[in-house]
Amino acid sequence: MMLEHEIPQGTKLYFGNTAKIKREIEAVASDVLYKADYEELITPLFSYHQHLSIADEKELIRVNDTQNHQLTLRADSTIDVVRLLDKRLGRNTSHQKWFYIQPIYMYPSKELYQIGAEYIGEKDLSKTLQSAIDIVKALKIKPLLQLSNIRIPELISQELGIDLDLFKHINIQKLLDRKVDWLKAIIYLEKLEDIDSVIEVVPDIIKLELERIKVLAQDIEYDNFVIAPLYYAKMLYYDELYFRMIEKNDVFARGGRYVNDEVTSVGFALYTDKIIEKLEGSK
């Protein structure tokens, strides 16, 4: 029996101050993004195509249309934003910078409010990362920015025949057991000032990927960051430079570079619910 006050687990209820904070975060973000020449896009809640791209189909909430075709509720905005710009809006606009402010929904009843930006056809992640930084600066929060490159663990895995799971679980002991000096240097790398000495000792194929992190770190205006070259997580689409903004146990933002139909783009998503919690706590 459901009691009258119950709401499904994972759903969100904001009222009074938290609803006001949510509105303020979205206003600040849209202001920053409009100034950076982004335009807003609002995509349908229902989609025919999410199941083609989502990593774990079990996360999708399914319904059916009038012809009994399968529909799902939006569980990822980037997939639909990129597809709609390419396949449906291609003739209407050539604009490349888009942002969205809309929730995603996952099985069984999880709701997540997000603010995202996609810069279609752009290869330089610093372009969108700086907009994410400008938003957190405008919100007067300073999460730790983690700069990673998904290619590095993949290349090390190929070079040394190491299972990618060791990177996923950050199994330091087993990585150090390989007794490879340059691998140890990468494990301990954290600060930008140390990156050149590590670039010197790593194999050539990894040099290039570390250089990419270095250039990204130099191109952004933010001082609270760490370099985490071995971070690895199974990504839905990010395949090279990648970042997270973290504070305590929360992730405020994620973003990176991705390729769709041979077009390279960069983008990010801010997790509004976590930022609301943070701003609510600091008031």
């Binding site: 730790l144 954290e190 760490v226 973290i246 929360d250 992730v251």
Partner: peptide, 22 residues
């Protein structure tokens, strides 16, 4: 074991105790 965010936030401390315990 270590928390994933703590590892990145306090990497030198975590790796220092890791080394000593190893």
């Amino acid at each position: 074991i270590a928390n994933k965010n703590s590892y990145f936030e306090k990497k030198s401390e975590v790796l220092d105790i890791f080394e000593k315990i190893s």
